[in-house]
């Protein structure tokens, strides 16, 4: 689905060639500062390679409109920003940015259930904890129903138990709708248990790639 051809971004990453497959869960692991977030940003065109090219379904990203591409390849950022307002506002804001219709409260409540947030839709977001904000940002993403999910440490603020449930929900969601996930995680457990492919990033380069068969579907 994605193909890197001799990509460099400044002095930060140097990726001669590698692919990311469609309909799979690909996990990037590596020390902080190794370039994982930079790789994700290359995938959704938040940045463009300073050398080489990134292909999406065989087409150079340069030739694809950035905004439309980001609506299809949506990213959960490392420290997702929550917008001032209520939980409903924050769930709907992605739809608004994508110029889509707001979701009904019924749909929003289902999302809250999925992300295990037992709060009122009208509750202000200011008092949410870090973990709750992270799940809210995830809910915002699910509503957008994109083809590809880029998840930058999606469970960094969650406790082990919640992490397990949320990631499991995500993977199931993605399989039912046949989507692609590319995520960054520091959790060995999550990486081993839910990935199809694990890519190890070291100082801006790919240090290893491993297919994992642990998951049965």
């Amino acid at each position: 689905m994605f193909e890197f051809v001799n990509v460099k971004y400044k002095e930060i990453v140097d990726l001669p060639s590698f692919c990311i497959e469609e309909g799979k869960v690909t996990t990037l692991v590596g020390q902080s500062g190794s370039g994982k977030t930079t790789i994700l940003k290359l995938l959704n065109k938040m940045i463009s390679p300073t050398q080489g090219k990134v292909l999406f379904k065989g087409k150079d990203l340069k030739e694809i409109n950035s905004v439309l591409h980001r609506r299809n390849v949506v990213m959960l950022t490392q420290n997702s920003a929550i917008f001032p307002g209520t939980i409903r506002d924050n769930l709907n804001i992605g739809l608004m940015f994508q110029e889509k219709k707001e979701a009904d409260d019924e749909v929003l409540k289902q999302i809250l259930k999925k992300i295990m947030l037992s709060k009122d839709l009208d509750a202000p977001v200011a008092t949410l904890s870090g973990g709750e904000k992270q799940r809210l940002a995830l809910g915002r993403l699910l509503l957008l129903n994109p083809e590809v999910y880029l998840l930058d440490e999606p469970s960094s603020a969650l406790d082990d138990e919640t992490e397990e449930i949320i990631i499991k929900m995500l993977i199931e969601h993605v399989h039912i709708y046949n989507k692609t996930i590319i995520m960054v995680t520091h959790s060995k457990n999550i990486a081993e248990k839910y990935s199809d492919t694990i890519i190890e990033v070291e100082r801006g380069r790919i240090a290893g790639r491993r297919e994992v068969n642990a998951r049965h579907h």
Partner: peptide, 17 residues
């Protein structure tokens, strides 16, 4: 800046962001 960036990754145009 973080809100602008967040809006962009959600698919906002620079104008909306």
């Amino acid at each position: 800046k973080n809100l602008v960036e967040e809006a962009l990754v959600l698919g906002a145009t620079p104008q909306a962001a």
